[in-house]
Every structure is written in structure tokens, then in C-alpha cells.
């Protein structure tokens, strides 16, 4: 499809421009989609503020959580047609590299990211179309389906957290990702403690099922405040970071009981590091792990969670915002106002 479209382009930190650019041209195994919903993500905010280490090159379209309609399709595509309502994620493993052969698909050496949801149209590369794209059932709105990618990441995070029924789980951070962790931890039968600095967000946390909330800005020692809620103050069974702040990573580690699983999920700024008490790690037999991105299995699980309505997707979307107001939406996220914004054209 020849022509121009409106898009938000990332040029550098705090330099995002609303421009008219060419509609992407598609190859024989690709599809062109008219974006119906694009959701703001914490990583878009990070990109806006400081750039992104892997996903975004300078002067390029960005945004990666979306749903829309196929408007043009390559001649080799046989599993989708023009008019299909679809949601897709932003990458697909190659299935060829060493890590894919180990079935560690999120570590694939050849993950190529598909960005450009903050635009009128987006192109879906052939391999994503073949293996990581889903048709949205009629009863599900575009903006609900657009939650597919972040939810897939969090399903991955939950499955790596070793949560057992009735475990005490702390989720540090009640942004979009933290709130998804709360909802999914509840589905696992856990008791959930939500820690955040904002009362507004802690209200959301309760709404998504948090059993306890702690406003860290009102506590002199948030680690002690978390441990206080556990039997004999021994600490939680599972501690998750969903903030991406190194100091919070350190506190997350300290919140666990002996033998706890610590999931440091939130990605921190590059060049940062954390301190871990070696005696604590050794004698408490902590399992400390990083979890990144999603795999096609978790994408399917997330899709099923959305379509079966086990996750109340609508609650994650605070308001609709037009594409030209993207920067305002990201700024609102930065001020911890609302959860996600639905960007529409």
C-alpha cells in the first residue's frame, strides 16, 4: 500500500517527533496492519527518557503493544487474510541458534524486534506472522488484545517464580507489570503484598487482588515492613522486583525467607549493578534470577488468559489518547498517573 501515514518517531532521549512517513512496504510473507489500539509500556517510557539498549535504533518508529486489522497481505501468507483482527508480539525466536536448540527461546541470538505501533500502520515480518500472531475473537476489544505482549512477559515471569498455593509473594512496584504480577500471583493461589510509592497505584493493586499494600514512602524500612507480614518475620517465599531500580533489587533480595526465589524482573539502566550479601546468598540458599521477555509458549498462555477473561484486561487501561498526544501519555506514566494509555489514530 503506497502512501503516507502519521507516526511518532524516536530520535533520542526526550526527542520524539510526530511526522508523516511512508507506509511500510510488505514482502511476500508479510502483512500490513492498520493499528486500532497501541498501548503505552514502561519500556517505551524508558526509551523516551534514556533510549533502549536492544530494541530501538535512533530515528525510528516505536511502540510494540498493539492490535489491529490486516489491510494488505503477501502472496505467500496462507494462515491470515485481509480483514482479520489480529494481535501479535514484537519478536519471534529463530529456532536455529544454540539457545533455541536448548529451548531457551527468550535468549535467542537472532531476536529481531518489530516496533512501530505508534503509527497508523505496522508491518508484521513473516516469521512473527507465522508463529507469534493470533486472531482476536469478536468478544475481545482491540485494546484488550493489545495487552498480549506485556502479559506474555509477565506469564513468563510468574512461571519462573516458583509460586506454590498459599505462598507469600511480594511484588515491588505497582506499575502495569507489577499489577499483572499481582493478578497472576493471585491466580496461582498466593497471598500478595504490593509495595509502591504511590497510594493511587496501591489502590489499583488492591483492585487487582493484593492482600496487603505497603506505601514505601511512609515506611522507614520497607524490607522490615514486608517481613512483618510473614510468619515469625521470616520473609516471603517469593520476592519479585517490577521496578527496574537497583536499590529496589537489593531490597527485594532481602525480603525473601531462607530458600526463597527472588525474581529480579524489572530491567535496570545499563551500567548499574547491585550488592548481594554473600553470606546471605550462601547460607539462605537463595535462588536469584533474572527473567527477560517472552517465548511463543508464554504468548499463547497470555492470549488464552485474555480470551478466557481470567485477567481483567480492561482495568489496565486508564484512558484513550490520540496518537499526537503520545508524549503526554508517556509523561503521565512517568508521573505514575494511571496504568496504561490506549493510543488511537
Amino acid at each position: 500500500m503506497k502512501g503516507k501515514m502519521k507516526a511518532q518517531l524516536f530520535y533520542g532521549p526526550e526527542d520524539v517527533r510526530y511526522e508523516n512517513i511512508n507506509i511500510p512496504e510488505i514482502g511476500d510473507d508479510e502483512a500490513l496492519v492498520k493499528i486500532k489500539s497501541a498501548l503505552t509500556c514502561g519500556s517505551d517510557l524508558k526509551t523516551y527518557k534514556r533510549g533502549h539498549p536492544t530494541m530501538i535504533k535512533e530515528a525510528s518508529v516505536f511502540g510494540h503493544e498493539w492490535a489491529g486489522d490486516i489491510v494488505e497481505i503477501g502472496s505467500d501468507v496462507d494462515n491470515f487474510k485481509v480483514g482479520d483482527r489480529i494481535a501479535a508480539v514484537n519478536s519471534v525466536p529463530c529456532y536455529e541458534c544454540y539457545y533455541c536448540k536448548l529451548e531457551r527461546y527468550s535468549l535467542c541470538e537472532n531476536l529481531i524486534y518489530n516496533n512501530g505501533a505508534y503509527a497508523e500502520y505496522i508491518k508484521i515480518p513473516g516469521n512473527i506472522l507465522k508463529k507469534n500472531t493470533y486472531i482476536i475473537p469478536d468478544k475481545i476489544d482491540y485494546r484488550e488484545a493489545a495487552l498480549l505482549e506485556p502479559l506474555a512477559c509477565v506469564v513468563h515471569g510468574i512461571e519462573e517464580s516458583n509460586i506454590k498455593t498459599d505462598d507469600m509473594v511480594v511484588i515491588n512496584g505497582a506499575g502495569p507489570i507489577g499489577l499483572m504480577f499481582i493478578a497472576l500471583a493471585r491466580l496461582k493461589g498466593a497471598l500478595v503484598i504490593s509495595v509502591d510509592l504511590s497510594d493511587e497505584r496501591l489502590e489499583y493493586a488492591k483492585d487487582f487482588g493484593a492482600d496487603y499494600t505497603i506505601n514505601a514512602s511512609k515506611e522507614s524500612n520497607q524490607v522490615a515492613a514486608v517481613k512483618e507480614l510473614t510468619e515469625d518475620k521470616k520473609g516471603v517465599d517469593v520476592a519479585v522486583d517490577a521496578t527496574g531500580i537497583p536499590e529496589v533489587w537489593e531490597m527485594t533480595i532481602l525480603m525473601g525467607r531462607k530458600g526463597a526465589t527472588i525474581n529480579l524482573f524489572g530491567g535496570c539502566a545499563s551500567g548499574t549493578s547491585v550488592n548481594i550479601d554473600t553470606q546471605l546468598l550462601h547460607y539462605s540458599e537463595l535462588t536469584i534470577k533474572g527473567v527477560y521477555h517472552h517465548t511463543p509458549y508464554y504468548v499463547k498462555k497470555a492470549f488464552d488468559l485474555i480470551t478466557s477473561r481470567q485477567i481483567d484486561t480492561v482495568k489496565f487501561i486508564t484512558a484513550d489518547m490520540p496518537l499526537e498526544k503520545l508524549v503526554s501519555a508517556l509523561e503521565l506514566m512517568g508521573q505514575q498517573k494511571g496504568i496504561k494509555y490506549n493510543i488511537t489514530t
Binding site: 529456532y95 508463529k131 509458549y297
Partner: peptide
């Protein structure tokens, strides 16, 4: 196929 139910479950 790396796409069907069985493939996704390994």
C-alpha cells in the same frame, strides 16, 4: 511447526 499446541508445550 513450532506453532501448534504440542510444539508450544515442547
Amino acid at each position: 511447526c513450532y506453532r501448534c499446541h504440542y510444539c508450544l508445550h515442547g
